[in-house]
Design a binder for these strands. Structure first.
Lengths: 220, 220
DNA sequence: GTATAAAGTTAGATTAATCTAACAAAATTT
DNA sequence: AAATTTTGTTAGATTAATCTAACTTTATAC
């Protein structure tokens, strides 16, 4: 009935890639897991036997409902853990990913229920990603990329797309954190870099590469 | 340089068995891990190559200093985790073993340092077992078994030897916990069962089997 | 002190997860 | 539409961890 650590990693990767592009190619999955394509193919056949993925030769991969649910529950454990590490254990949001990557495989409903309770049932993780519910279901709010906003708008930082520690340290260095109110002063047409102001910082330039990784909400 | 999860489990078992009897037989280890003897033999050769155990055909097994240290550090993680689960996550001492068994394999020095700090550097786990130091060294205080005490003595419950949830629930049902002061009223010569009183309980009979699993300190 | 039992080892098979090499299908380019 | 590139599959080898069956060594019993 239950899945190996390896299988869990494939499910999670399928879920994460699919959330962006809908379907998943063997090559994408192979690249994302850093595992060669033949290995991926054979694992897909195995997961298909367990009714976790729909697999047909040369067709894109899709998680079954069962697969989506199991993947969602693993991601739930991952994101709850990240929240726990930041909120209760006082770690930085740039330091929690690798630990959560390990703890997400812990088999113990009680452990994660306690976490959830201690955190008072959080809806998002420290990077603004939604925490799937106890059925594995997850819904993203429809945020905008900062790179798609217009000059003059004021927005609130809601989530970060890339959670690499390099990017998060980049944000730390600029005192940027979730909930921050950002005013868009101007957009440079040449390279789409954006001049913003926020907090005590009257003028700061953010590259388009950075702005594409920042999700924001409009502020009234 | 680092060890697989499987290797960690062998090291831990070697450490735990050796702490009682000094040396370890293949048969004991095999039984304790529920793994057949030939498998154990081949793993011992592997660990010998890594300089973690002294292995010679047909001789008892012994951990090397390196092996003791690595095993001690795993047990440190296990016991810190148990303490964290009981103290910070409010779980019962009968429920933490299986979770700690998984979390002890997490590779993240920071994670366990934070735990240690949050717990204010505890010396023992929730069952009274000493937590190895950051070098993997561990020393047991010289407690006595309750079964070796004499009538008339008053003692303090310091540790439990068996940490099966059955035994711990047995103690819960009798409101027995670490630190409890117990007065030995009499010892039945026939079966060595002991009549004790403690807390609000004026008279309680404990079997010899139970008393052999309870470690106590003399009270002045 | 031989016989039996227990403990330990060797040899060879199995399973999960991975790989490389070679081939096949689909997509892209020209 | 033919050639090339990219993507995906098949076949077969490898490694870690396990097993069973058969054999050997050590310990125990009589």
């Amino acid at each position: 009935m239950s899945n190996s650590l390896t299988e869990e990693n494939y499910l999670k990767a399928l879920f994460n890639i699919a959330s962006k592009t809908g379907e998943v190619n063997v090559a994408e999955l192979s690249k994302s897991l850093d595992i060669k394509m033949p290995t991926v193919t054979s694992m897909m056949k195995k997961l298909a036997k367990k009714k976790l993925v729909h697999y047909e030769s040369y067709k894109p991969l899709r998680l079954t409902e069962k697969g989506k649910k199991e993947a969602g529950l693993i991601i739930r454990k991952h994101r709850l853990t990240e929240m726990f590490l930041v909120d209760k254990m006082k770690m930085g949001w740039e330091d929690v990913h690798d630990i959560a990557e390990q703890i997400e495989h812990i088999q113990s409903p009680v452990f994660f229920e306690k976490m959830d309770e201690m955190l008072d049932y959080p809806k998002v993780d420290p990077h603004g990603s939604p925490i799937p519910d106890t059925k594995g279901k997850v819904v993203w709010k429809d945020y905008n990329k900062l790179s798609d906003c217009k000059a003059g708008e004021t927005v609130k930082l809601a989530a970060v797309i890339n959670t690499s520690s390099e990017f998060l340290k980049f944000l730390n260095n600029r005192e940027m954190h979730l909930g921050l109110k950002i005013k868009i002063k101007s957009i440079e047409p040449f390279d789409k870099s954006i001049e913003v102001s926020y907090g005590k910082r009257p003028a700061e330039i953010l590259s388009n590469v950075a702005c594409e990784r920042l999700l924001v909400e409009k502020v009234g």
